[in-house]
Simulated assay, not measured.
Amino acid sequence: MKPVLFAAGLLAFATAATTAQARTLAPAAPTDTIVVRLPNKAIMTLVVRDAKQLRELPKYHLDSLVARLDTYIQRADEAAKTAKTDRVTLEFFPNQDAPGQGLPEEVRITTRKNRSSGERTNRVDVALSKVFGLQAKIDANGTKMYSTGNNETRRARRDSLNEANRERQSTRTDLILDLGLNALANRGSGAPELRTLGSRYVNIGLNTFVRLGGKKSPAYVVFGPEFAFNNYMLEGNNKWVNLNGQTSVVPETNGRQYQKTKLATSTFTVPLMVQFKFREKDASTGHSRRGFTIGAGGFVGYRLGSWTKLKYYEEGNTYKDKDYGPYNLTDWQYGLQGVIGYRTLQFFAKYNLNELFREGQGPQAQTVSFGLRLLK
């Protein structure tokens, strides 16, 4: 196809798009398509996200682009003549060459050799802005189809639209996984020192989000079932002992050296929080995406089980002793919790208002858990 014919075709398309500006357009779906068939059998397709994008088309001064395309295509043809491959791609940036004139951001011309006839075919990609563009693929028969955006752009647009549609839902459920550490607060008589990295906290659950207000409201009520596992690992050569209805921490006296000595619990809990999930605009796609998140509320739960575990070496062998029992732990759990994060990175903190042990039957302390929250 001659470069002049292609330039004339693009000019005709620009005229058709400008005429469409004067029409009253109904709100368009994200995949609305305008097809222009030119007399020389060339076909052009413009895909726009909505009517607003179509009305913005004249500001890109496609008539000025037409004057430049002849030079661009000539340079692409010259490069193809001396190329060692059957495909050559050149990129041009009209808006950078002449800033302030409303030209498209990028023009990409791919020239391929037709192996059967020896002729070359030109494919012209015009990126009008970062959010939409025009791709025209022209061959000898003028019958091949084409669309807008490269694979990476289309994938980013699709993911952004899916995320936006998901955020517009009034109710949804997320799988959460909390990974963190435990500490003891308000320690009283007999409360032990915990080994920080060994006192791990794991929580898995299903959180249901119910939107408060309209479809763009950032406020949600959050609740759902969760299963939490708390480890309380002791520092030093100490161990948890339950004797005569009293749970306490005592040092080992028979010379045995412990590698691990911990108390562990499993708990079923139900949170109730108010959470705000704000959104921000993605500069690369023009769509909104998840931004800052903050939430606070409480939780209530019940202890399902508890046990102690001792790990030690003796006479060249490794032993792990596990003993199940209530250990005078408080059955009902309740407290405060909060989350804060940005995009997919979130942190949590939980503070138990209940004492870890029943009154007068164990060390006085309350549990604090904190760490990283993973969402799916």
Rank of each mutant, 00 (worst) to 15 (best):
F299R: 01
E167C: 07
S369L: 01
E252M: 04
R343A: 00
N317H: 15
A76R: 11
S217C: 06
E193S: 05
L194Q: 02
R211L: 02
E193H: 14
D125H: 13
N186L: 11
G190T: 02
N40G: 00
Q257W: 01
D174F: 14
D97E: 15
V4Q: 14
Y60D: 07
L10Y: 02
R120S: 10
I138L: 15
W240I: 06
N151T: 07
A127C: 08
M233C: 07
T153V: 12
L25S: 12
L243D: 13
E235F: 00
F227A: 06
F276V: 03
E280G: 08
K320T: 15
R120D: 02
L329R: 04
V241W: 00
M44C: 10
L375W: 13
G335T: 04
Q74P: 03
T45N: 06
V339L: 09
R200S: 12
K144D: 11
L25E: 05
E152K: 13
E193K: 14
D178C: 04
L128I: 09
N207L: 14
A98T: 09
R154N: 13
A156T: 03
K59Q: 14
A191M: 03
Y324A: 11
L175M: 11
P3V: 08
K59G: 01
T71M: 10
Y302Q: 04
N238P: 02
V300M: 09
A283F: 03
L212F: 06
I34F: 10
L5Y: 10
K281Q: 09
Q366L: 03
L179W: 05
A185H: 06
F370M: 06
Y319V: 07
Q101P: 08
G305S: 12
Y72L: 01
V274D: 03
Y220L: 05
R358N: 15
T265A: 03
L272V: 08
A16Q: 06
N186W: 06
L62F: 09
L128H: 08
V270R: 06
A42R: 12
S189L: 11
D50K: 02
V210Y: 13
A20T: 11
Q361N: 10
F357R: 10
P192N: 08
R195P: 01
A28L: 15
F13S: 15
T153K: 15
T45S: 08
T110N: 07
S129D: 14
G118W: 00
R256F: 00
L372R: 10
T111Q: 11
